[in-house]
Nucleic acid binder design. Structure first.
Lengths: 126, 126
DNA sequence: ATCTCTGCAAATGTTTTGCATCAGC
DNA sequence: GCTGATGCAAAACATTTGCAGAGAT
């Protein structure tokens, strides 16, 4: 095992996520974290994303037809809403019942991811 | 509007999906469809995937930490299980209750996607 | 005969890696 | 001072596009 050093850049990436209430793409992380660590490079963003995913500080969010986003893990359990008009991703509270009923015998479930697609409030009434 | 011609290659791509009971990646499509259309190029696969998505013959499946897959749309409503050991994607019957309860007021839901992650039966007992 | 589709190769866009240097510890 | 982390540039992938020629209608 190796330790991770606490660099200015890694802190900046973490801050980007702490300050944001929605999942971020690598480019968004670069632009947000650059304020705290000027000169930050995209390669460093990717390296830190990978590291923070490995230590489970971040979790990936998969979206249909769009690049993956990342968000702080360890929050309370929640799901997502992906607006097809503005592409924003919102967090949803709660979790539907009966997910375990879908699991075939012999399969072992460790996690689940639910994404609702549609139009968000801002886009419905502009 | 323009019409799509019925080429050997397009048929081959469609056949790949008809013969498969699970979502496919572009590379998998290339290798399966090549049997019906020798010499098939990856660019043609991508062009046909795009076309078949546009005419709603195919639907994309987003996976956490893995490239997107595609499957025939128009099947009965179902969800997916993604095995983190062998990376296969299975179809699940049924749909959990109460998804609409998660939707904030003013949001309009058009679709939802649920993916369970874990270990499939073949990988649990090898 | 027309005009779309194909294969190839080049172009793009995204993510990863090699390497010299920098900076935490 | 040691060693992991960074920035840059190049490399590796994945996907898209331009173009000349093949093939569907």
């Amino acid at each position: 095992m190796s330790f991770s050093r606490n660099t200015r850049q890694r802190d900046a990436v973490r801050q980007a996520f702490e300050q944001s209430d929605r999942p971020l793409s690598p480019e968004e992380v670069l632009s947000l974290a650059s304020e705290f660590a000027p000169g930050l490079g995209i390669a460093t963003v990717y390296r830190n994303l990978k590291g923070l995913l490995a230590e489970d500080w971040l979790a990936p969010v998969a979206l249909v037809g769009d690049a993956p986003r990342y968000e702080r893990s360890g929050k309370h359990h929640h799901h997502h809403f992906h607006c097809s008009r503005c592409d924003k991703v919102y967090e949803l509270e709660g979790c539907p019942e009966g997910i375990n009923r879908l699991v075939p015998r012999g399969f072992k479930v460790e996690a689940h991811h639910l994404v609702l697609n549609g139009t968000c409030r801002s886009c419905v009434r502009p």
